[in-house]
């Protein structure tokens, strides 16, 4: 019983964190978080990991010549037809 409850919480939590929950689901989770400490911690942790990924993963700059070389190949292909 408790396990099922946990699983339902986890699913709800992920939906909210990923911004794909409905308004009702969002509020349901918020109500639950007020009374459940372990879910609250889980929520904050998952959220902070997601935020860290977004802000810390290095974006590798696209090589400057890549766009040009693609454009050139496309022009070649197009003019062959």
């Amino acid at each position: 019983m408790e396990l099922e409850q946990n699983q339902a919480c986890t699913e709800l939590l992920l939906l909210v964190i990923d911004g794909q929950a409905t308004e009702e689901q969002h509020q349901e989770l918020m109500r639950h978080l007020e009374e459940c400490e372990s879910c609250r911690e889980e929520y904050l942790l998952s959220k902070s990991i997601k935020d860290s990924l977004k802000s810390h993963i290095k974006i590798n700059g696209t090589p400057k010549d890549l766009a040009n070389s693609i454009q050139n190949k496309i022009s070649e292909t197009a003019s062959l037809k």
């Binding site: 904050l44 942790l45 990991i49 860290s52």
Partner: peptide, 16 residues
């Protein structure tokens, strides 16, 4: 346990 403060202390390289 992994804690929120810990995650916030991790830097880009570690997360990457």
């Amino acid at each position: 346990d992994l804690r929120v403060e810990t995650v916030q202390h991790l830097i880009g390289d570690e997360i990457t």
